[in-house]
């Protein structure tokens, strides 16, 4: 007993440790701007020759550092274009940031290829890279309306857009913590859901019942109830089929089992009453 408790405690410990260790999202951030840092809203030159602020007055401000020609940056920018479209009618301010080390023609080509419409800011002499401590490409920062850094996300090949959009929606208060958590930690995609053999047999029996093939339906219900004797719907259906065959006494038994398993089963109560009315008094 003690051993079991210890094992459980150990497992819980391992689980929480694993969760803590494997998702140190706050540890992975800009090396010079931790989550919660107020980001300076600098004005920067843009690719098209104008000037634009890093952040806006939107509820969510998203800025992405990318490097044209780098495969993962190119992949990410295509995904960003889709994210941008998905949030087009929302309070989201998007900008891309590239170093002025990259030739403008190369950036223009990458922007066109990706299909982004957000302004692309030119980081002269990597000043913003340096002030935030950007070490990787591509990386995305998200701030709230007050320009506090609320999230940092670097490249992933899998579920990048899913996670980014969920974080934006969370910031926009469109989804709650629980829904965000579901995206960050998706459950195992099982096959066959939570269905049971009994449920499938029940559904098949229902189909046969509807087509008037009572004997076949009953055969499937027998298999169904062998698998799950407490399946109320199966007992109820069995009662209905037996009643349809005129076998009211057996139907009554079936309905009574259904009622025992589910005392609030109004349908079973009515069926019992109907059966009792039809069973001749002995």
């Amino acid at each position: 007993m003690t051993c079991k408790v210890q094992l459980t405690v150990t497992r819980c410990g391992v689980f929480f440790f694993a969760v803590a260790v494997l998702w140190p999202t706050t540890l992975w951030t800009f090396s010079r701007a931790a989550i919660g840092t107020k980001i300076e809203n600098v004005e920067m030159p843009t690719l098209d020759g104008g000037r634009h602020h890093l952040l806006g007055n939107a509820m969510a401000n998203v800025f992405v550092f990318f490097k044209p020609g780098q495969e993962y940056s190119d992949i990410t920018m295509k995904k960003m274009a889709l994210c941008e479209k998905e949030t087009a009618d929302k309070s989201v301010h998007w900008v891309g940031i590239v170093s002025n080390r990259i030739p403008p023609a190369e950036v223009e080509s990458a922007v066109k290829e990706a299909g982004i419409t957000m302004p692309v800011l030119i980081d002269v002499d990597d000043a913003l890279y340096g002030s935030l401590g950007v070490k990787l490409h591509p990386v995305v920062g998200i701030t709230d309306q007050e320009h506090n850094l609320v999230n940092y996300q670097h490249f992933t090949k899998v579920n990048f857009s899913e996670v980014l959009l969920a974080r934006i929606r969370h910031l926009l208060k469109e989804i709650d913590d629980q829904k965000l958590d579901k995206v960050l930690h998706p459950v195992v995609a099982t096959t066959g859901g939570n269905g049971t053999k009994a449920r499938i047999r029940l559904m098949l029996a229902k189909k046969f019942y509807k087509t008037g093939k009572y004997e076949i339906a009953l055969t499937h219900l027998t298999t169904c109830l062998d698998d799950d004797p407490k399946l109320v719907a199966a007992h109820t259906l069995r009662g209905q089929i037996l009643a349809a065959q005129g076998n009211y006494s057996e139907a009554l038994e079936a309905f009574q089992i259904a009622l025992e398993l589910d005392p609030d089963n109004a349908s079973a109560k009515e069926e019992i009453k109907a059966c009792q009315e039809r069973i001749p008094e002995r």
């Binding site: 995609a189 096959t191 066959g192 859901g193 939570n194 269905g195 049971t196 449920r199 499938i200 559904m203 098949l204 189909k207």
Partner: peptide
Amino acid sequence: ECHEEFEEE
């Protein structure tokens, strides 16, 4: 109609 368990999927 029978394989309702796939609704979630």
